[in-house]
Simulated scan of single mutants.
Amino acid sequence: MTHPISSPKPIHWVHVVHAYGQLFRLSFAGIAAAAGCAAVYALNPALPLSNYLLTGFILTSMTAAACAINDYWDIHKDRINHPERPLPSDRLSLPQAWWAAALLFASALIAAIPLGGYAFLLVAISTVLLWYYSLLLNYSGILGNFLVATIVAFLLLLSSLAADRPFALLYPIGFLFCYALAREVLWDVHDAEGDRVQGVVTLANVWGSQAAFSMIWGLIGVMLVSIPIATTLLPMGHPLWFAGCAAIMLLTLITALIPYQRQINEANYQQLVFWERLGMLFGVVGLLGTAPSL
């Protein structure tokens, strides 16, 4: 007895849109855009709306593109670490992810032109580094952590350039670098198995998760200690506002980090991701108090 060959199940456009939303990590991209716009406002609230729109668009596009190309290169690791993502679950194809990343990076570059030559150069350099990030990660995951943390911190530099005050946010840039580095090392703890299979050298899979957590706690300690020093010595417009929001952001991370360190599992990881992103919103609000007055 023969059975008829069934045709492929049609994919509804809603499912495709949802898959792209997951590929782009839209919540994270939105936080990046909000942080950039908040920094622009803190530096110069009298700027025209176009500066906010361009900054927000660039950061949204670059963040989404970085997530897409990262998943493109990391599909073999994600089949182990994140099988639910659009590419390993076959809800999107590799060419779809590649073209989406290319178009978003190109859009960010075009949008950076009106902000001036330095902003365009910063976006161009970040685009090249983000495109080849996963390949550099295969050479050294630890180097990759520092690279990503640097690029994340550059979002405040882009905002400073958009507001024509390039050196006004040096402390927040350093603070964000430490936070992003701790975050990258933390994600490596979750991804250790897939990284180990692919031969990626990270702190978690070479020296163990406890060494990774030690570095994370060290970076959190540096940030906590820096808050009262910075608010006392630096000419911030609203130092107490920044101190309160930054403390809440770090305490939110700590609250989720403790149970994850005690028991590394998927449920605690998802809780960690949720609370970490919620805490980042407080960090965005805190940026409004960091800039010195005009």
Rank of each mutant, 00 (worst) to 15 (best):
L170F: 11
D191W: 03
V189H: 04
W131L: 15
I254C: 07
Y20L: 14
M236I: 05
L121F: 05
H76Y: 08
A243P: 06
N81C: 07
A66V: 04
I110S: 01
R25Y: 10
A112V: 10
L59A: 06
L250F: 02
L156A: 06
Q22I: 00
N81E: 10
E266C: 00
K77N: 14
K77Q: 13
V148R: 04
A29W: 01
V14S: 13
V17G: 02
Q198E: 15
T2L: 01
G141D: 08
I142Q: 08
M215I: 14
G56N: 03
E84V: 07
Y171V: 13
Q198F: 01
Y52T: 05
M236Q: 06
W98Q: 08
T150E: 09
S126V: 04
V152Q: 11
S7W: 00
I58K: 09
V197A: 15
D78T: 14
A230V: 12
L257Q: 04
L157R: 14
E266V: 04
N265F: 01
L253M: 10
Y20S: 04
Q96Y: 07
P239C: 06
G194D: 04
F154Y: 03
A149G: 12
F28Q: 15
T63D: 07
L224S: 04
S107W: 03
F28A: 15
L278I: 15
P114T: 13
H190P: 00
L169K: 03
G36W: 05
V40Y: 00
H76G: 02
H12R: 12
Y139F: 13
T2N: 02
I31P: 00
M249Y: 01
A39F: 09
G237W: 10
A19S: 15
L47S: 11
F274G: 02
L122T: 12
L43C: 02
W13G: 02
A32H: 06
N44A: 14
L240W: 09
L281A: 09
A192F: 04
T60R: 00
Y139S: 03
Y41S: 07
W13S: 09
L240K: 01
W187Y: 13
H18P: 00
P88R: 05
K77C: 13
L288H: 00
S214A: 14
P292Q: 10
V148S: 11
A153T: 08
E276N: 15
Q263I: 05
L59F: 11
V128W: 07
A267Q: 05
V189L: 06
T232V: 00
D71L: 07
I142V: 15
W99Q: 00
D90Y: 07
N145W: 11
T2H: 05
I258L: 15
A19Y: 01
C245R: 04
Q271G: 06
P45C: 09
H238G: 01
V285G: 02
S226N: 09
I254T: 09
A182S: 14
R196Q: 14
S214E: 04
T60A: 09
L94P: 13
A39C: 12
L176D: 05
R165W: 08
A111F: 06
S107I: 05
S293Q: 10
D74C: 09
S159Y: 07
A106E: 03
I173S: 00
N51F: 11
A35E: 08
L158V: 08
W13V: 11
H18Q: 05
H15E: 14
L156D: 04
I142F: 08
P235K: 04
Q270A: 05
V200K: 13
A42C: 08
L278P: 00
